[in-house]
Design a protein around this nucleic acid. Structure first.
Lengths: 275, 275
DNA sequence: GGCCACCTTTCCGCATTGCGGAAACCGTCT
DNA sequence: AGACGGTTTCCGCAATGCGGAAAGGTGGCC
């Protein structure tokens, strides 16, 4: 592009065709089945480029084409990739699964298993609640750790220097999806103290208006808080329930999950890692 | 590339950088954590290219870099992609999950939920057996349908013209991972008849030496065989068990899963779709 | 039944993009 | 310290992928 008067401005990170292909995949993941031109419209690509990328992804099985209408959707090869990740979360998931189910049965609410990835939590497993109005977190989705019960439950047991690196004062106020979100390091630290005292973390509409969540951390054999299990649902219902009882229920199950992972329960182990 | 004497041979399908990036992802999925140079070695790329692709993937969260040693591994963003697929398998998985667990408890063997994708089956859920020697199928992995119990169970209920398109005589002998694999359309059809009579499919080391499998199809509300549930384990153990009883167990559970999906159980519905 | 409109797919010349050799950088082990 | 194994950055060259446009399909409307 001769670019009349503009500065060339050559950005040197990212590979264009790869970036665009990932846009295409994410678009399909979000929207289900789409035609080439729809993909092009949503990604801002021209159709011929969208088509080339889709064809390339289809060759490899990452997208599939409906033979009836020629439209494209995510292919099952992406599951295989996820399977590669799974080996890393597998012991945790295996240990937590039955407990998620029991907690779900006891409360009828959606229960989740989350892990920490940088400053985000990733939901790696869940059992859906039985209420007609229930939480729906897509598996594999992520959220800012400081805005969620699970995130705060895990962060509480990270050493302070890690916290300071993740949440430097210079970044205040932290991103704020709702008015109740904690936006300063001090507010977070205060909450960590409360969480440690109570034994469970609470999120009352800090991540999303109308939804609340109770969460407790899970520890692996090295004593690291490697994940968290949580109950989430409409604030009205969570408020109505005895949150202390929910917290206690989660704590008991979390302790069993930790034990299954080889964590030795010493009364202060949770505390020692906390400070 | 001046390419001394060779024919240019410009292949026009596939986007080079995308293809290579997918190679990188698949390598990481298969191997876990790798350094740049290891990735380069395994994919046949030069290190600078491998690094560029890894950096591009890392920008988007599809790979993560261990800050300690600089090595790369799959990132959690791939889970999010898989979550996009999940919405398509979700009702099936939700309906089948409890039954997989019960079958696993009753038999102590690994139980799987598989769907058909072209001529392959994809394992979309599983409950691991409790034996110390047990089947390990990675979630999201796929296998040639004609070599597996689940695949044959589903194919049995596909119309003959679909079967003929998938398995044309011209492709005989079909791919053959073990000596017992069925390699002709006729052999497959004979097996379909047996499967219909018995009510369950059997795979005695047709997919992998030493492992056998019993499987039954699951039907959705439109009467389509949308998946299969199966038990798999070492041939010795499967043989020792009463395969007819295993088949019957699976049939009962498969019927319940089908019912949960809205399939109306008419005695000949299975048969009518079969022929 | 035939035309039209919209969609997917293919084509091809141009220059932008990504390639890869080589050099810089960084930490560890001897 | 020095050397080695690794990651990361740099940069000129041309192969690669870009996108406008045309071709090929399909279904819906008159």
């Amino acid at each position: 592009m001769p670019a009349s008067g503009a500065v060339p401005e050559r950005r040197r990170d990212g590979v264009q065709s790869l970036d665009r292909a990932l846009d295409v995949l994410e678009t399909l993941a979000a929207s289900g089945e789409l035609g080439v031109s729809e993909v092009a419209a949503r990604t801002g690509l021209v159709v011929s480029t969208a088509h080339r990328l889709l064809a390339g992804l289809a060759n490899r099985g990452y997208v599939g084409q409906n033979p009836a209408n020629g439209r494209y959707a995510l292919g099952f090869k992406v599951l295989e990739l996820a399977g590669g990740l799974e080996v890393r979360t597998s012991p945790l998931r295996a240990a937590a699964r039955p407990h998620l189910e029991r907690v779900q049965q006891a409360t009828s609410e959606t229960t989740n298993l989350a892990i920490l990835d940088g400053d985000q939590v990733v939901y790696v497993d869940q059992v859906e609640g039985s209420h007609s109005v229930r939480m729906f977190t897509r598996l594999g989705s992520s959220a800012l750790a400081h805005t969620t019960g699970s995130g705060k439950a895990i962060l509480t047991h990270r050493p302070p220097e890690v916290i300071e690196k993740l949440y430097p004062r210079t970044r205040e106020p932290f991103e704020r999806p709702t008015p109740r979100t904690l936006t300063t390091l001090e507010a977070l630290r205060d909450d960590f103290v409360r969480i440690r005292r109570r034994g469970y973390a609470l999120d009352r509409e800090e991540h999303e208006e109308g939804v609340s969540c109770v969460a407790t951390p899970v520890f692996d054999r090295s004593g690291l808080a490697c994940g968290a299990i949580s109950i989430s649902g409409p604030t009205a219902r969570i408020d109505q329930a005895d949150t202390a009882a929910l917290g206690e229920l989660l704590r008991r199950h979390a302790a069993e999950v930790s034990a299954a992972l080889g964590h030795r329960e010493t009364p202060e182990s949770a505390r020692s890692h906390a400070v």
